[in-house]
C-alpha cells in the first residue's frame, strides 16, 4: 500500500429547503507519504468542503453522505468522535487561509500552541510543553521565539501569524497536513518564504501535504500531483507536469489561458466565459458544458466519468483530447 490517505467516492451534501445540494460529489483522491497533492479550483468548486469532510468538520446542515476516507487503511468516517479527536492535530492537521481569524486574539500565541499540544499530551508539565512550543516556533524560523511566545496575534505580521499557524499544526508531528489556501492572504515575497518553509518541513518530516489553492503558480511550484475540481467534482487528475504540459480537460485549458503570466507577450487573456453555476442549479450532463467552447450535444446528456487518457492521467471529458475532436 503506497497511499497514506485515500479518499473514495466522497459525497458531502447540504440538506436545504430547496432540496439536497452536493458540495462534494463523488471525489476520489490519494496522497502518499512525503508527497504533495494540489487541489485546484475556483470559489464554490468544493475544494474547501472536501478538506473539511476529511477532517469531519463539515458545518451544519452538511453531512458526509457517502464514501470513505482511509488513513493507512482505516476509515475515518467510521471512528467515534473521541477517536476522531485523536486523529485531528496528531495524525492530520490543517492550516487555513486567514491567519488572523484562525488565532484567538485574547490569548498569547504561546498559550495557544501549548493548548494544542496539551490536547494530545495530558501528562507533560507546563514547562516542558512551553519548551516544545519554543522549539516549534524555531522550526518555522520565527526569530526570538522565546520572546514571541508571550506576544498576542495582533502584535505579529501576517507572515508571522501564518508561521505560528504552521508551528501549531506541526506541533504534534502529523502525517498529513491539509493547507487550505495557506498563502492567499499574504504578500508575494512572504508567500515565497512560507512555501519554501513548507517544502523544507516536508523534507524533514516526510509528511504528506494536501494543498488547496486557486493559484496554478503555487501548484506548479509545490505539488507532485494535481486534481482540478469544478462544481464539486474532480475533472482532471495527473502528475503536475502532465497537467501543465498535456492539459486535457477544457476547464483546465481555460484556467491555464486565464492566468496572467510574467513571461507572456500576448496581451489578451483567454478568459472562460460565464461563471461557476451555483450548486443548486447545476446543469445536466457535464457541469462545465455551458461554459465550454468545445461542448457538443452529447455533453448535455450524461455526466462524463473520469477516464484514463494517458498513463496516470485521468480526465472527465468525452471530447478530450480536443485536437482529435476538432480534426474529426
Amino acid at each position: 500500500m503506497t497511499s497514506l490517505l485515500e479518499i473514495e467516492g466522497l459525497r458531502t451534501v447540504f440538506r436545504t429547503h430547496g432540496g439536497e445540494v452536493a458540495a462534494v460529489d463523488g471525489v476520489s483522491l490519494a496522497v502518499a507519504r512525503g508527497r504533495t497533492l494540489g487541489i485546484v479550483g475556483e470559489s464554490g468548486c468544493g475544494k474547501s468542503m472536501l478538506s473539511l469532510s476529511v477532517m469531519r468538520l463539515v458545518p451544519q446542515p452538511g453531512t458526509v453522505a457517502a464514501g470513505r476516507v482511509l488513513l493507512e487503511g482505516k476509515d475515518l468516517l467510521k471512528l467515534s468522535d473521541a477517536e476522531m479527536r485523536q486523529v485531528r492535530g496528531r495524525r492530520i492537521a490543517m492550516i487555513f487561509q486567514e491567519p488572523m481569524t484562525s488565532l484567538n486574539p485574547v490569548f498569547t500565541i504561546g498559550s495557544q500552541i501549548v493548548e494544542a499540544m496539551r490536547a494530545h499530551d495530558k501528562s507533560a508539565t507546563h514547562a516542558d510543553l512551553r519548551k516544545r512550543a519554543i522549539a516549534a516556533l524555531d522550526r518555522v524560523r520565527i526569530p526570538a521565539a522565546e520572546r514571541r511566545l508571550d506576544e498576542y496575534p495582533h502584535q505579529m505580521s501576517g507572515g508571522m501569524r501564518q508561521r505560528v499557524m504552521i508551528a501549531m499544526a506541526l506541533a504534534c508531528s502529523p502525517d498529513v497536513l491539509i493547507a487550505d489556501e495557506p498563502t492567499t492572504a499574504l504578500d508575494v515575497t512572504v508567500q515565497a518564504q512560507i512555501l519554501d518553509l513548507l517544502r523544507d518541513l516536508q523534507g524533514q518530516t516526510g509528511m504528506a501535504i494536501i494543498l488547496i489553492t486557486h493559484d496554478l503558480g503555487v501548484v506548479a511550484e509545490m505539488a507532485d500531483e494535481v486534481a482540478v475540481m469544478y462544481a464539486g467534482r474532480v475533472v482532471e487528475k495527473a502528475a503536475t507536469s502532465a497537467i501543465f504540459d498535456d492539459p486535457q480537460h477544457p476547464y483546465t485549458l481555460g484556467l491555464l489561458g486565464s492566468i496572467p503570466r510574467v513571461e507572456e507577450t500576448r496581451e489578451r487573456l483567454l478568459a472562460i466565459e460565464g461563471a461557476v453555476p451555483p450548486p443548486f442549479q447545476l446543469p445536466k450532463g457535464c457541469r462545465f458544458h455551458p461554459r465550454c467552447v468545445f461542448a457538443t450535444g452529447a455533453c448535455q446528456v450524461d455526466m462524463p466519468p473520469l477516464r484514463m487518457v494517458a498513463e496516470g492521467h485521468e480526465a472527465a471529458c468525452i471530447n478530450a483530447p480536443v485536437e482529435a475532436m476538432v480534426a474529426a
Binding site: 512572504v190 515565497a192 519554501d196 501548484v219 506548479a220 511550484e221
Partner: peptide, 20 residues
C-alpha cells in the same frame, strides 16, 4: 517571488528573509 505556472522551473531563488 511570483510563483510561475511552470512545473519545470527551478524553484531555487533568493528571497530575502523578514517582513516589510
Amino acid at each position: 517571488a511570483i510563483p510561475r505556472p511552470d512545473p519545470h522551473r527551478d524553484t531555487a531563488r533568493q528571497i530575502p528573509g523578514g517582513d516589510v
